[in-house]
């Protein structure tokens, strides 16, 4: 079990309130991602749940039980840190065994769980090595192994992939998702990378300055961002947001359209037009950065890979009208 509830939780460092009153429920078995720009309070929130920081006020419940004043060790949660935080002086085996040793799990049970975790994480041949002798990906797996063997109520991940290179990151992303499917345990995952959030989460919590901007499934956030911040944060490349007469024509203070919802064509017959700046060819797709559209400085457009325009070409743009997002003066979505 691992249902985590935050009730009116706040956190201040001295005078500075980093988390204003916040309510959130994470259901048992859910993969929840906290995402937001750096300094948005997502890591602080995770550390409050872990018990590594005190809440200033409010309550944290784990499976209905008030855990607000419990020390980290008593909360039944496991955490994977950004730096992995492996014990450098212990072998992989000892690292994984450490939480069980602290919990006084019998020796043969310890060994059973270590073997099991090592097999699942492809670490069997490395059990007697020290963390210093492992690659980044292997260290990451050891950290996960150390978390798994505790059989925690929930796993907490604090930007676990940010120290890995791009290729490994994709692999580990899949492995963690796989692990979640297999264990079906609650996982809370902190990242600043919206791609990780979109690809892994059951539920995304978008945070800004300690406030929850929106909670929802990846597709909900993609399709119906509640405000301009979420609209700009979720999706890659970013949504084109623009204000002014063109937005007003559409009946909004701010309007937004995603690069993948704009088609290119002959400037004579399209809704908007502009001049091609940089073209980024990915093979499968091409991203055009368009200037002089009268909308915003740059409009990004995603076109099929075989579409070819040169720097300086005039180009026509046709938005899918049903995919235009409209926001009011306060930046809130107009339904």
């Amino acid at each position: 079990m691992g249902r985590i509830t935050l009730e009116k939780v706040t956190k201040s460092f001295g005078e500075v309130e980093v988390i204003p009153p916040l309510d959130l429920t994470i259901e048992d078995g859910e993969f929840t991602v906290f995402v937001g720009p750096s300094g948005c309070g997502k890591s602080t929130l995770l550390r409050l749940i872990a018990g590594l920081e005190d809440t200033t006020s409010g309550h944290i419940r784990i499976d209905g039980e008030d855990a607000t004043d419990l020390p980290p060790a008593k909360r039944g949660l496991a955490m994977v840190f950004q730096s992995y935080a492996l014990y450098p002086h212990m072998s992989v085996r000892k690292n994984i065994a450490f939480p069980m040793k602290m919990a006084k799990v019998p020796e043969d049970e310890q060994n059973r769980r270590i073997e099991q975790a090592a097999k699942a994480l492809n670490l069997t041949e490395y059990l007697d090595r020290r963390p210093g002798q492992l690659s980044g990906g292997q260290r990451q797996r050891v950290a996960i192994g150390r978390a798994i063997v505790r059989e925690p109520a929930a796993f907490l991940f604090d930007e676990p992939l940010s120290n890995l290179d791009a290729a490994l990151r994709v692999g580990m992303r899949l492995e963690i998702s796989e692990l979640h499917k297999r264990l079906a345990t609650t996982m809370i995952y902190v990242t600043h990378d919206q791609v990780e959030a979109m690809t892994m989460a059951d539920k995304i919590v978008v945070l800004r300055a300690g406030n929850i901007e929106q909670v929802g499934s990846p597709l909900e956030l993609y399709k119906e961002p509640r405000n301009t911040f979420v609209a700009g944060f979720i999706g890659s490349p970013k949504m084109n947001l623009f204000e002014g007469p063109e937005a007003e024509k559409l009946g909004a203070h701010t309007a937004g359209v995603r690069p993948e919802h704009i088609e290119v064509g002959d400037p004579a017959s399209t809704y908007w037009s502009g001049t091609v700046g940089v073209a980024e060819h990915l093979g499968s797709d091409t991203f055009f950065h368009i200037h002089e559209t009268g909308l915003a400085d740059t409009i990004t457009v995603r076109a099929p890979g075989d579409v070819d325009y040169k720097h300086g070409d005039r180009i026509g743009l046709n938005p899918r009208m049903d995919m235009i997002h409209k926001f009011d003066q306060q930046g809130l979505r107009i339904q």
Partner: peptide
């Protein structure tokens, strides 16, 4: 790194165990 001591704390180590098994050897 403080994270390693926090990891020990998450792993259920008491303050004494944290100092004895993690900090001191490191």
């Amino acid at each position: 790194p403080g994270e390693i001591l926090e990891a020990a704390r998450m792993d259920g180590a008491s303050l004494r165990e944290e100092v004895l098994y993690v900090l001191t050897p490191m």
